[in-house]
């Protein structure tokens, strides 16, 4: 167990390093790093401006811009050699300093702190929806494999997997909130109940396609598990079918779902960008899209790093979760 854990930990650190380095490269090598943090001000010829007449009032604005640029150079360590810059940048991030949005001068960390809860609520609710739908669905489909329900559910899941997130969101929004007016069409944060209620549709948009893929995996694995000797043994012990299903067959059948859980969290984070857009949820997904459109690079990079690192860590935790699911993994 200890060796397994350490090996995983080393991989985790290496991947985190690579991921941050990729982000850093995007900022520093794709395009001018200075432009990426201060925008058009990077074009200013500050030396000429400094050299210009101190009295010339038309240069006042430019002079203050040049101060901003010099500040940015210092903040983002742009005068240091690349490896040092990288280390300093990573160090800054670890201490919660993600730089400053150059659109509204707000520290990026503050923006994230403000927007993250909404996105987290959305993602958690979406996972609840997906697992809450997929487990009963998969169990029933496997128990009645190749019967009418199972065949129907295969068709349904195929359809759900083929509809893009944004299209599903628009359709759900139209049907359930505009046409039948069951759910609110816009984000509400007045009360907890209102918040959760307004998140149902977005969570369903993210969760239902995922439920379909979980269901298919769970169904396949369950059908295999149900043919195992130990399930026969449980039947020979005289246990009732549903008890066998949940106490014996379900846990060993969750491997694929758990594997995909990590990967699907990534898809879900991607999907949340779109869904927050459709339902007007002020989360980090909406923030990053706005930032991209405005070329607000510090915000984009910070959010990308945050999301990627979270994703890596989630997959790490999922890996560890295996050893709970199957004690045999620990022995390896």
């Amino acid at each position: 167990m200890a060796r397994f854990f350490i090996r995983r930990l080393v991989l985790l650190v290496a991947v985190l390093f690579a991921v941050t380095f990729l982000g850093f490269s995007a900022m520093n090598f794709l395009g001018d790093p200075l432009f990426n943090v201060v925008g058009l001000m990077a074009e200013l010829d500050c030396e000429a401006i400094e050299a210009g007449s101190a009295e010339d009032p038309s240069l006042d604005r430019a002079r203050s811009d040049c101060e901003t640029v010099a500040e940015a150079r210092a903040t983002y360590h742009l005068d240091r050699p690349v490896p040092v810059r990288y280390l300093l940048w990573v160090g800054d991030m670890f201490t919660g300093d993600f730089g400053t949005s150059f659109q509204n001068d707000q520290p990026v960390a503050e923006i994230i702190r403000e927007k993250l809860p909404e996105t987290l609520i959305l993602l958690i609710m979406a996972q609840i929806v997906s697992l809450g739908v997929a487990i009963p669905w998969g169990v029933v489909a496997a128990y009645r494999a190749n019967r009418a329900f199972d065949r129907g559910s295969t068709v349904a899941s195929f359809g759900l997997l083929s509809i893009p997130n944004f299209a599903l969101g628009v359709v759900l929004l139209y049907l359930l909130s505009l046409r039948w007016q069951i759910f609110p069409s816009a984000y509400e944060s007045d009360s907890v109940v209102g918040l959760v209620f307004s998140m149902v549709l977005p969570a369903a948009t993210l969760g239902l396609p995922l439920a379909a893929s979980y269901q298919r995996l769970l169904r396949t694995d369950l059908i295999t598990t149900l043919q195992e000797d130990f399930v026969h043994m449980a039947r020979a012990k005289g246990l009732p079918p549903m008890r066998i299903m949940f106490r014996h067959a379900l846990r060993p059948s969750l491997f694929s779902v758990v594997t995909v859980f990590g990967v699907s969290t990534g898809a879900m984070i991607g999907g949340s960008l779109v869904v927050e857009q459709i339902f007007g949820i002020p989360g980090i997904g909406r923030e990053i899209v706005t930032a991209v459109v405005r070329d607000d690079f510090p915000v984009v990079l910070a959010i990308v790093m945050l999301v990627a690192c979270t994703f890596v860590i989630i997959n790490f935790v999922v890996d560890l979760f295996y050893s709970w699911l199957d004690p045999r993994v620990r022995a390896r």
């Binding site: 195992e228 043994m233 846990r251 060993p252």
Partner: peptide
């Protein structure tokens, strides 16, 4: 059953 390797639930 025949095979005690498979007739016990591995996770219990």
């Amino acid at each position: 059953f025949q095979d005690p390797m498979t007739s016990l639930n591995p996770v219990k």
